[in-house]
Amino acid sequence: MSTLRRIVALLDRLGDDRGDVLRVEGEGGLSHASGLPVAEVEALLRGEQVASAAESGADAVEARHRRVLDRILFLRATRLRPSTDGQRRVYSLAEIAAGAGTSPQWLDKMIKTGKAPNLDHAAGIAQFFGERIEFLVAEPAEALDRVLRDIHNELLERAFERQDQDLRRLKDRGTAPDLNPELGVVGYAARALAEVPDDTAQPLIALIESVARRAREERAREARGE
């Protein structure tokens, strides 16, 4: 999964904990954010295939309906509302129906029969829980990659911010004692390539380092009058 590789590269450069950012379980974890069972998330992170509705032995339409319904139930079980006693509780069918523009009776029938709602009602239910329709309908690999792309974009933004801060400190070197003057062009090239996969970035960094080394050697020879 290319998005995962890019995330790992950024985490290494930023010095962040992989276990925290790529946590699978718990609120805010990859399972919670994608709507996938923990076992499926872990399998996908290992690079294993998870059968989609079209690939499963079940009827494809029925499998898609089951997926949408399962994720609606997942949302109801994991997106809880605060109550007056300080606890968090599941939303009632009446509350969900009111927010989604349907009736509690229809929702109850949907759950009992296992038939997914139409796209308009599905979008309304997803929106009620603060999600987009893609949360309910995406294939497993797509659902996880959607979450990973969001994580990657956040990390990339942080990498750019850090790069900008370093460059500003470079311009104000005299007033920035924490700047490492030895970082040089190679270090800043590495930061500029933060979003590039390692197999592409490393040869470029090596080339820049080689050019910089030759330039230093030339200056040293000139200083010696050679």
Rank of each mutant, 00 (worst) to 15 (best):
T175Y: 15
L156D: 09
R191Y: 02
L170V: 13
E161C: 05
N153W: 12
E157F: 14
L183Y: 15
N180A: 06
R162M: 06
L156V: 06
A190F: 02
F160W: 14
D172N: 11
L148K: 01
I151K: 06
E157M: 12
R162A: 02
A189E: 02
R191C: 02
H152L: 10
D172S: 13
N153P: 08
D178W: 14
G174K: 13
R158G: 03
H152Y: 08
L156G: 02
R168V: 09
T175A: 14
E161L: 14
R149G: 05
D164W: 15
E157V: 12
E157K: 10
D150Y: 06
D166K: 11
R158I: 10
D166A: 12
E157D: 11
A176R: 12
L167T: 12
A190V: 00
D178M: 10
D172F: 08
T175P: 07
R158T: 11
P177Y: 01
D166L: 15
D164K: 07
L155T: 00
Q163C: 12
L155M: 05
R168Y: 12
R168F: 11
E161G: 15
N153T: 09
A189F: 02
G187A: 00
L183M: 13
R191E: 08
N153A: 14
A159G: 00
K171W: 07
A176Q: 12
I151L: 04
T175F: 13
I151R: 08
L167P: 14
L156W: 05
D150P: 03
I151E: 04
G187D: 00
I151H: 05
K171F: 02
R168I: 10
A190N: 01
V185A: 09
Q165V: 04
G187I: 01
R169I: 08
L179Y: 10
K171D: 13
R191N: 03
L170N: 08
L148P: 02
K171A: 14
P177S: 03
I151N: 01
E154G: 13
A176L: 07
P181I: 11
A159R: 03
R173N: 05
E182S: 15
R162F: 09
D164T: 15
Q165E: 12
P177I: 03
R162N: 04
L155A: 02
R191S: 04
G184N: 06
E161W: 00
R169N: 11
R191H: 04
G184D: 05
V186Y: 05
A190R: 03
E157H: 15
F160N: 15
R169S: 09
